[in-house]
Simulated scan of single mutants.
Amino acid sequence: MLTIHDAQYLTYPEYFGAVKLAYLRNRVPSALRRATAVATPSEYVRKTLIDSFDVPAEKISVVRHGVLPHIGQGATSEIELRNKFGLGNSRILFMPAITHPHKNHEFVLRMLASAWKDSSIKLVMAGGVGLGETRVNEVISELGLGDRALRIGRVDAADRDGLIKMSVALVFPSLYEGFGAPALEAMALGTPVIASNCASLPEVIGDGGLVLPLEEAVWAGALTEVHARRDELVRRGHARADLFTAANSAQDLCRAYEYALGTAS
């Protein structure tokens, strides 16, 4: 059984170093040929592999990620988080993502400096340092967002869940996701999602959030829409997250192994 979480290197090879790109181009096709069965987290990745490597469709199964039932139970309180990160009384937009270029932090930063320039809104960006870190910091400086765009680095699960729960919305303008776990976590925790319509995100979010093309004019009214439809979006998000339980993920995995065992016997 082979698991492939994404095939980003096929779509955005420019985001990979020469050594890693050469490794992936060599090893992924070889592994797919040798595997009895393959699991992917989304239909998007499954279809990419079928189309790119001429893999028999029946060989690849979608094994969705699942949210654990206790998510959010140990979340840090809003008061503690506001004090810890100096958030004051600001309305929070949360973006949990390593600063890799494909995460597309710059898009949200430009929204913050234009259509979302209300000074009461702060963008809190959690996550480690990626290949785009320097550019993210440059854009924050260029746009004069030092007091409204906060890089807080890696956070633990309790702080992450608390930040999601207290936020106006989770913003996720990623160019590529093999699945998009942060969007699912937000829906499970009752926070509206504003995401791009790229890669697997429409498949995962469905009607549980706002899935929008990466155009500033389209995103301009997203916060107003979230405010007007908040109760509906929370309800739809919960319903969507209910499809992605740990139990459902386990069932998917069992079916994939049943196929592998049946083929090997």
Rank of each mutant, 00 (worst) to 15 (best):
E232S: 10
V19C: 06
E14F: 07
R91Q: 10
A157S: 14
D252K: 08
G208F: 02
I60L: 07
N197H: 09
G190F: 03
T11I: 13
L109Q: 14
A113R: 07
L210G: 09
D51C: 02
D51I: 02
H5N: 10
S52V: 06
A220S: 13
P29H: 09
E225Q: 14
S249M: 12
E232D: 13
D231A: 15
G237T: 06
L210V: 04
A250C: 04
G130S: 08
V67W: 00
S52Q: 10
Y23I: 05
A158I: 06
L175A: 11
D207K: 12
A22I: 04
T134Y: 05
E258W: 00
F53M: 11
P213Q: 12
T40V: 10
C198F: 01
S167M: 03
F244A: 06
A181T: 03
L170N: 06
V139L: 05
Y9K: 10
V45Y: 01
V204P: 01
V62N: 11
A256G: 07
R151W: 01
E142P: 01
A250G: 10
T40D: 12
L10C: 02
L131R: 15
P202M: 15
L24M: 11
A246V: 05
E142Y: 04
I50L: 08
S30D: 10
V62M: 10
E215T: 01
N26T: 15
M187D: 12
A241F: 00
R91A: 09
P192K: 07
A37K: 01
L93R: 04
Y257H: 14
